[in-house]
Amino acid sequence: MLSVEDVTVRLADSFNVVSGVSMRIERGEVVGLVGESGCGKSMTSLAIMGLLPAPQARLQAGSIALDGKDITSLPPYRRVEAGCGGVAMIFQEPMTSLNPVLTIGDQLAEAIRVHDGVSGPALRHRAQELLEMVRMPDAALQLGAYPHELSGGMRQRVVIAIALACRPQVLIADEPTTALDVTVQSQILALIRELCDELSMAVLFITHDLGVVAQLADRVLVMYAGRIVESAPVGTIFREPAHPYTRGLLACLPNPLARGRRLQTIVGQAPRPHEIGDGCAFAARCAYAEDACRSPGADWRQVDGDHGVLCRHPQSGQLVQ
């Protein structure tokens, strides 16, 4: 459904924040894109939407296709149109995505008018239908509510409803539950899963939270310093991760039922984009790194049928926690 080939995003004409990222997402599939702050996951999503903050950031290379149709050079509003496949995006903080002085109904109506060209009762009917799709209680009543009258979880439901107004075939969700409490988060995750199945959308779910990925995703892409370093089905990523970074990340997760207070750590910290050299960006923090790792040319290799890794020394075996 969504196919991204070799996308490179260059910042301020001096360094790359996203380097050669490729991915394919099928209908009815949730792909989790996981990584720490500054790894380029949000920039990747903005590149897909055509929303890169110009002129600082620009698409240096690569192509994006929806259902086989190249949309790389289309402006963002054309990418949202149902005619060419439809990509919609939701963001982390629902309050900043909503207009505080317009009612929920007005904001839904705006999106519906653009996509369906309807007005009057048909418009209202569709707005209510969208709110019902996101399981909003008392949908008809809530059309008149303002964003500040709703809780964080409700606001995120409204944002999802607006995103669904264009009947998207691809939904990009950038940390949509990060600002929410865990009990509300689990409701929103369940909602996204159900909508993905019901509407057979392709969902790209971006998060820093490995727990959320484990709960929701079918496949996982791990990103580090602008590159995808590992790609595998969710079970494989958590059971037998091959990249030393993925293994390190999983090992340093807190576990309340484990004995002892000390956690494993990854030494040092991730490089900033301008500090990334030609070799493997993880080499400085990697226990398995050799001289060869610091020179360019690490190739993507398939560990298994659908399990790939960008590393000269992929590890094998189960992760012991």
């Binding site: 399981r135 909003m136 209680p137 809780s151 979880g153 409700m154 865990v182 009990t183 509300v184 988060q185 689990s186 409701q187 995750l189 369940a190 909602l191 899963r193 159900e194 939270d209 490995l210 727990g211 959320v212 990925v213 484990a214 709960q215 995703a217 969710v234 079970g235 958590f238 999983l250 997760l253």
Partner: peptide, 21 residues
């Protein structure tokens, strides 16, 4: 505790989409 997303795809939460806040 049940709502905490665990980093283990083998134990997925049977989440409800119903609102409870």
């Amino acid at each position: 505790m049940a709502a905490v997303p665990r980093p283990d795809p083998a134990v997925r939460i049977k989440g409800s989409t119903e609102v409870s806040e």
